[in-house]
Simulated scan of single mutants.
Amino acid sequence: MANLPFSYSIRRSPRVSRMRITVTPDKIEVVAPPKVAEALLHQFVNDKQQWILQARQKVAGNNRPAAFPLPATYGEGTPIPYRGGQYPLRLVRYPNKRVKISFNGELTAQIPAHLPPEAHSAALKPALVAWLKQQARQHVGQALERHTATQQLIPQSVLIKTQKSRWGSCGIHNDININWLLIMAPPEVLEYVVVHELCHIQIRNHSAQFWALVAEHLPGYQSQRQWLKQQGGELLRYGFGLMG
């Protein structure tokens, strides 16, 4: 651990069945089942150090436009941006008829056993898009639950949409649209966009009064707004490349 060019933490979890590494802008974390020997964990990190360095560089934005690198193909080990981290995709062959994506500390794709390797990428892309949209719907709903009760900011409807140049919008009838690509941004960024659009239910402009209302819900919203200014373009590029 001391000889590596980075530090990392170890977290034991009975919910995971195998070791995994999560890289975010704030930390490098190794998550492992409770009974895995610590020496084995350190060896695992040592073996993965090149991937860790690359992932850390991507999430930190030190090698733009590598914060959201668009892979040539999707398969085993492809890093997928999700909730502010980069998760290497793990493929598992199953006797099912279509690709199924799941996340339990690691991002797993169940691939139909009959599907040849050369067909994996084409099958994975639409499955990832569908799964990410479903996750966006879930996490947007959770953010709404946290903020709608305050000052009765209740939308008429909420849609998760593909938007080419906007992260969210609030219509004249209080219908809110949220861009599903935000599920790949840090959680607080998605929450900021939800709060932003909710506040437009009460104040339709971007006056000082509007920003004061946003700050009542999210006192540190400025950093989330800045993240979108700095990283949003790359995230849009990645998302539309994934759908292409």
Results as ranks from 00 to 15, higher is better:
Asn205Glu: 05
Asn205Arg: 03
Arg93Ala: 14
Leu53Ala: 13
Gly171Phe: 01
Leu91Lys: 12
Pro187Met: 10
Val36His: 07
Gly168Cys: 07
Val99Gly: 08
Ser169Cys: 06
Gly168His: 11
Gly84Lys: 09
His200Asp: 03
His206Ala: 06
Arg146Thr: 00
Leu236Met: 15
Arg11Pro: 05
Glu234Ala: 10
Asp47Leu: 10
Val193Lys: 01
Val140Arg: 01
Arg18Trp: 07
Trp51Arg: 11
Asn177Tyr: 00
Val140Lys: 01
Asn62Cys: 06
Asn104Cys: 04
Leu144Trp: 03
Arg20Ala: 15
Ile10Asp: 05
Ser121Met: 05
Val189Asn: 06
Leu132Val: 08
Pro126Val: 11
Arg20Thr: 15
Phe6Arg: 02
His114Glu: 15
His120Ser: 02
Trp180Asp: 03
Val16Thr: 14
Gly141Cys: 05
Phe210Met: 08
Cys199Val: 07
Asn174Ala: 07
Phe210Lys: 03
Ala185Val: 12
Lys161Tyr: 06
Ala122Ser: 12
Asn96Ala: 13
Ser102Asn: 12
His206Gly: 05
Ser9Ile: 06
Met243Phe: 08
Arg20His: 15
Gly171Met: 03
Phe44Pro: 05
Asn3His: 13
Ser223Ile: 03
Gln138Glu: 11
Arg93Pro: 09
His206Thr: 05
Ala2Pro: 09
Gln110Gly: 14
Pro5Val: 05
Pro34Tyr: 00
Glu29His: 04
Trp131Phe: 10
Gly220Tyr: 05
Cys170Trp: 04
Trp227Phe: 08
Thr162Glu: 15
Asn179Pro: 01
Ala123Cys: 11
Asn3Gly: 14
Ala127Cys: 12
Cys170Phe: 03
Val30Ile: 08
Arg56Gln: 14
Ile154Cys: 02
Ala215Trp: 01
Trp167Gly: 00
Ala39Ser: 14
Lys133Ile: 10
Arg90Gln: 14
Pro69His: 12
Ile178Tyr: 00
Leu124Ala: 04
Ile52Glu: 12
Ser102Met: 11
Glu145Leu: 13
Glu197Tyr: 01
Ile21Tyr: 07
Glu29Arg: 12
Thr148Phe: 01
Ser207Arg: 10
Ile201Trp: 00
Pro88Gly: 02
Arg83Tyr: 05
Ala122Asp: 14
Glu216Leu: 07
Val195Asn: 02
Pro187Trp: 04
Ala72Asp: 15
Met19Trp: 03
Gly241Met: 09
Pro116Gln: 03
Gly141Met: 02
Ser157Pro: 04
Phe103Lys: 13
Ala32Met: 10
His42Ser: 05
Tyr192Glu: 02
Phe68Trp: 04
Asn174Asp: 12
Glu118Pro: 04
Ile154Trp: 09
Arg146Glu: 03
His206Glu: 01
Val195Phe: 02
Val31Glu: 11
Tyr82Val: 08
Ala149Leu: 10
Gln138Tyr: 13
Asn205Pro: 11
Thr78Pro: 08
Leu198Gly: 00
Gly141Ile: 02
Gln54Val: 14
Gln224Arg: 06
Gln86Asp: 10
Met19Lys: 14
Val31Arg: 02
Arg20Phe: 10
Pro116Cys: 01
Leu181Val: 07
Asn205Gly: 05
Tyr94Leu: 09
Ser223Phe: 00
Ala66Gln: 15
Pro187Tyr: 10
Pro155Ser: 06
Leu40Trp: 04
Leu218Gly: 00
Ala143His: 08
Glu106Phe: 12
Pro155Cys: 06
Arg56Val: 02
Val31Trp: 01
Leu53Gln: 14
Glu76His: 10
